[in-house]
Design a protein around this nucleic acid. Structure first.
Lengths: 143, 143
DNA sequence: TTTGACTCTGGAGTAAGGTACGGGGTGTAG
DNA sequence: CTACACCCCGTACCTTACTCCAGAGTCAAA
């Protein structure tokens, strides 16, 4: 087995497709282990860190927050964790996404209805969108 | 016409269903006009501010950012604006929401697929979710 | 050896939308 | 007149996920 050639932070950044500053940020955030250091203080990484950073990137793309990713990472190497735990986390996230989608749809519907009833010409005083936003404004003489 | 009894910031807050601090924040943000002051420095509002704050709250509920709300508010009282301008803004927002929904659905699909293929029991080493996140990790001996 | 690219640290800044706090002064009911 | 709730201001702090900076040291190729 050949000794593994250590990687600099810049090399890791390039391989993981991420910025150098971001790696240091993740280190502070506890998402990646503290790396070995050369006498000069330079960080030394191996490929496993590249993997881990890619893991983080993909999880982020799936909408996980860094906090959730930290959980996922800890689940990953805890021997007492089962696939069930990971699946639960994924399903929780799916439910959360569903909630967001529902909420956006509701908003969309409301906005759509307003836009549909708006003639799209004439003064703002006849715009149902503004009217709706002003609804219940009784005592108002407007500013 | 009877003189309108001025409202304190707390009364306005209660009526608009919003916090006192938030009102001061909106004032700094330029979303509401600078109010009159009593000799003591106390802010004095009238009902129109309550209306305006409710407008802001509803627009916020529809997913508009404070910046967009500022635009909406300025459109509202600019005589040269037409209903068209407001409608455009609403439609732009709808398109933006559609983009968000599409993005969330894409994420959801990916996550769902992973969760479906996960047996939900056994060690994490057989969890396809983690596997997917680790994909392309060739040289990795795992940390 | 020189040069240029890279790395180190700690701290500040960004966006959004507030929330909280401390140390005062004020308004008003009883 | 005394409580006590309310208001003032400025500033700091919160969350998320970075991003940038200065000033200094280091590494590697030519």
């Amino acid at each position: 087995m050949a000794a593994v050639k250590p990687l600099s932070i810049g090399q890791v950044a390039t391989r993981a497709g991420i910025g150098v500053e971001t790696i240091r940020f993740y280190e502070r955030a506890g998402l990646i282990p503290l790396p070995a250091r050369k006498a000069s203080g330079y960080r030394q990484y191996d490929e496993s860190t590249v993997s881990r950073l890619r893991f983080i990137r993909r999880a982020k793309d799936l909408g996980f927050t860094l906090k959730e990713i930290a959980t996922l990472l800890s689940l990953r190497h805890d021997a007492s964790t089962t696939a069930r735990d990971v699946k639960d986390e994924a399903e929780r996230k799916i439910a959360e996404i569903d909630g967001k989608i529902r909420s956006l749809r509701r908003i969309r519907r409301a906005l759509q209805q307003l836009a549909e009833t708006c003639p799209g010409h004439g003064p703002t005083s006849e715009c149902p969108i503004l009217e709706a936003l002003e609804r219940h404004d009784r005592a108002s003489t407007e500013e």
